[in-house]
């Protein structure tokens, strides 16, 4: 750590924190991917997690994923809530026997000393109705604050995980606020510089939070979104249908493009939900429709090469 320049230290800069985590997991055998180039609600949606969790092949990857939760927008006025934030995602398949230790060492790498802080694994079972996925695990607490989610995937996209993958999700802003000792997310030091060179999280994202909150709650074009949902759903089904090699259900050639449309439908649904135009009963049926797409994509994936064929 001593060789790290001050502006790159995880307790000094947001980007330093990210780079430290990437470096750590790269050292532990992960491929370091870049964010998926689509709007998603969580790092789990990245095909490197959702789809790669399925099938027998080993897979270790880590990446940052910008995540969008349109409903969590607060016009930049809440110190903790954002409609766009970063998750750091690690997926290890099969889950290694020392995965908890690996996780704890990653905390040490970003400056959380287990001799000084109270780190706890508190029961939290994970379920994603839209992805047809569930797993068992914990919220990881540091001095009473949830800093990560730790899940052993049991099922994803309706398919049993064999072998089981371990998923770690770090809430980066929260973790950074903790190690930087900052109360308001917008005060985070982004680049680790001081004085005129300092760039804060607010400098980067405050305007975006304000604009997107307006968009998400007031102006998002619902007629277009309803149409987009239908189009994404239709396209997903079309690609899935067309992807079966020779029309036989033993090999699929287009699982990834189909899954993109599933992601799309999911995000469009989240936007519609934020606009409050989906009633309670309809909500359930939309979730079900996305889950059906996810399941069909999972089924297609396990008939691809990376899925184990």
């Amino acid at each position: 750590m001593d060789s790290t320049p001050i502006h790159m230290r995880p307790e000094r800069s947001f980007q330093g924190l990210i780079l430290t985590l990437q470096r750590y997991w790269a050292d532990h055998g992960c491929v370091i991917l870049q964010p998926y180039d689509m709007e998603v609600g969580a790092g789990t949606f990245h095909p490197a997690t959702t789809l790669r969790a399925l099938g027998p092949r080993h897979w270790n990857a880590a990446y940052v994923q910008p995540s969008r939760r349109p409903k969590d927008g607060r016009y930049g006025e809440n110190p903790n809530r954002l409609q766009h934030y970063y998750q750091f995602q690690v997926i290890l398949k099969p889950s290694p026997p020392d995965i908890q230790d690996l996780y704890l060492k990653s905390l040490a790498a970003i400056g959380v000393d287990a001799g000084l802080h109270d780190i706890r694994f508190v029961e939290d079972d994970w379920e994603s109705p839209t992805l047809g996925a569930w797993g068992l695990g914990w919220e990881c607490w540091c001095d009473g604050m949830e800093v990560s989610q730790f899940t052993y995937f049991q099922q994803v996209a309706g398919v049993e995980c064999a072998p089981v993958a371990g998923e770690l999700t770090y809430g980066l802003e929260r973790l950074a606020m903790y190690v930087q000792g900052v109360e308001n997310v917008y005060d985070l030091n982004f680049n680790g510089r001081e004085g005129a060179d300092k760039v804060t999280y607010g400098d980067v994202f405050l305007q975006a939070e304000q604009e997107y909150s307006r968009h998400n709650f007031e102006h998002a074009d619902t007629a277009m979104l309803f149409e987009q949902f239908k189009m994404a759903e239709g396209a997903c089904r079309k690609y899935l249908e067309a992807g079966w090699d020779g029309g036989k259900k033993d090999r699929h050639l287009m699982a990834l493009p189909a899954y993109d449309q599933c992601i799309k439908a999911s995000h469009v649904f989240n936007l519609l939900d934020a606009r409050g135009v989906i009633s309670v009963t309809e909500r359930q049926s939309y979730i079900l429709r996305v889950r059906e797409l996810a399941k069909a994509c999972g089924e297609a994936w396990i008939h691809t090469e990376a899925g184990g064929v």
Binding site: P94, S95, Y152, C161, V164
Partner: peptide, 9 residues
């Protein structure tokens, strides 16, 4: 739950 390498079997 299942876990690790053996969970494939």
């Amino acid at each position: 739950m299942r876990w690790g390498e053996l969970s494939a079997k």
